[in-house]
Simulated assay, not measured.
Amino acid sequence: MKLIGSLGSPFVRKVRIVMQEKRLDYELVLDNVWAADTTIQHSNPLGKVPCLVMEDGGAMFDSRVIVEYLDTLTPVGKLIPPNGRERAEIKCWEALADGVQDAGLLIRLEKTLRKEEQRSQAWVDRQMAKVTGGLQAMADGLKDKTFCGGTHYSLADVAVGCALGWLDFRFPEIKWRADHPNLEKLFERLSERQSFKETLPQ
């Protein structure tokens, strides 16, 4: 399998971590979707990463779709419960973490792609409210648990860890550790895993 992505994308990182936790072999193909010579549209018509290209040439995109598929390939390191409310809760954690990253990405694009006089502070404020609200929801949901889903490491932790790591990378001015010490403890625990160490955003 080939994974098309970038080293700075938290969504690509999520897939890479799952690949490593599941001990799956793949080739990472780097592509800057904002560059004039990007070829991502050949595999994903939406022009986004990550995109997983299978052995038969078929392509799969959207990180949530990809990681769900990967979790079915081997029983090693199961990250998503098979069914029921527990499964929905883990996927809800993933949606929350992805939503924080989506909002942060919209802020970043507003500040990097638009000229200063064209930027909307109201838009930035609206997206930042989603980031801070999402962080609060994560902290409230985590409480004093070892992992997001309770006692077992899951996709929820992968997603939340990627979101927190990406905020450190792109928004160091957001002091989420001071506001949410339980998230800091979780992040420190996750950062000790080899899959997190080897996929640091850059």
Rank of each mutant, 00 (worst) to 15 (best):
N44R: 09
D168M: 08
L79A: 12
G8Y: 05
S6A: 13
M60S: 00
E27S: 10
V18D: 01
T151H: 08
R114A: 02
C51D: 03
P172H: 15
V124N: 10
R16C: 01
K115W: 04
L30K: 04
R119H: 05
K22R: 06
G77C: 14
L105A: 04
R189L: 11
P45R: 07
T112G: 07
L135C: 04
F11W: 14
L70H: 12
L46I: 04
D179Y: 14
P82R: 13
L70T: 07
T112K: 09
I174C: 03
A35E: 06
G165K: 04
S191F: 04
C51P: 01
D157R: 14
D140V: 05
F169I: 06
P181N: 15
D25V: 07
K22S: 01
T112F: 15
G57Y: 05
V158I: 14
Q20T: 00
A137F: 08
T72Y: 10
A178S: 15
E192C: 06
R189V: 00
V12R: 12
V29M: 08
E173W: 04
L164P: 07
R170H: 11
A129V: 11
Q127M: 14
F147G: 07
A129G: 10
P181S: 10
R85K: 14
M60W: 10
F169Q: 06
G8T: 05
L24P: 05
M128C: 07
G134Q: 12
D25H: 11
L3C: 13
R108F: 07
F196M: 09
L200G: 03
G84L: 04
K175F: 10
P10S: 02
V33H: 04
E173K: 13
F147N: 06
A122G: 14
G150Q: 07
F147I: 00
G165H: 15
R23V: 01
G58F: 09
E192D: 13
F61H: 10
V29H: 09
E116H: 13
V76I: 15
L109V: 09
E192L: 03
S195H: 11
K78N: 11
R119K: 15
L200S: 02
R85M: 06
L73F: 05
H152A: 14
M138C: 13
V49H: 08
D179E: 15
K143C: 05
T112Q: 12
P45G: 05
I80T: 02
I66S: 04
F171S: 03
R13Q: 01
L164V: 09
G47A: 02
V49Q: 03
I174M: 12
L96F: 04
R87P: 04
I107F: 08
R193H: 09
K2N: 08
R193T: 02
V18G: 03
W34R: 04
L46C: 01
D125S: 11
P50D: 09
V124G: 05
P201T: 02
L167Q: 05
R85Q: 09
G8E: 03
Y26M: 14
D140P: 10
